[in-house]
Design a protein around this nucleic acid. Structure first.
Lengths: 104, 104
DNA sequence: ACGTCTGGTAAGTTATGACTTACGGTAAGC
DNA sequence: GCTTACCGTAAGTCATAACTTACCAGACGT
């Protein structure tokens, strides 16, 4: 139920850039916006989307909001992908089997 | 280099529906379009995007084009996600360590 | 108390992309 | 050869969403 919004959130390059920035650890909004090619409000909007997708968590520190990666959304996405990957491998294996049994 | 287009491709619900249909095995375009809420040309366009993202392969069978899941794009996506997941866990672990060492 | 720094939200513009219908082109069946 | 299925592509419409600037509110320092 959550992997849909996670995929949608990570599709946008700028938003993905915001997300990847948090890989180096928790950061305030200003810190993230620093060095980004878009305005700070744009970053805020992206963070909102990421948060709603369960990809990011936020807690306050005085006037600042510290953002960090939320494993939850990431986990949902991975589970979905894995389940997909398995059946892809199955099909792949089946194709190999079929080809092998042809035994040209 | 390929995970970007894979994410973009899987973000759209209809296109994801097309993709998920292939989980039950290779299918011709008409078979995929059957039961979808959009027209057949729309499905064709989605398949084109999926193919360019490395998520889908195609081979001809007479007048038909049989589409199937391509493990390549799926693999690229998974590698990207994993690398991300690792650092998220690292950060998570670091947070736990910090909290534990506080030893309230 | 006042100015400053923080960041979220509103409103409006603009580009993108998901759909439609119409068409063309190839392969199979009669 | 002619028709019928299969499917990709072109052209055009319309909604969405990624930006911008402007504004507002809460926390901190002096």
């Amino acid at each position: 139920m959550s992997y849909e919004s996670a995929l949608a959130a990570l599709a946008d390059p700028t938003r993905r850039g915001v997300f990847e920035r948090l890989r180096s650890g928790p950061q305030p909004v200003g810190g993230i916006a620093k060095g980004m090619p878009v305005s700070r409000p744009a970053v805020s909007q992206h963070l909102k989307v990421l948060k709603e997708a369960g990809l990011v968590r936020e807690h306050r520190d005085g006037a600042r909001r510290i953002y960090e990666i939320d494993p939850q959304g990431l986990g949902a996405l991975r589970r979905w992908l894995d389940q997909f990957w398995d059946s892809a491998l199955d099909a792949f294996q089946a194709a190999i089997d079929a080809e092998t049994s042809e035994e040209r």
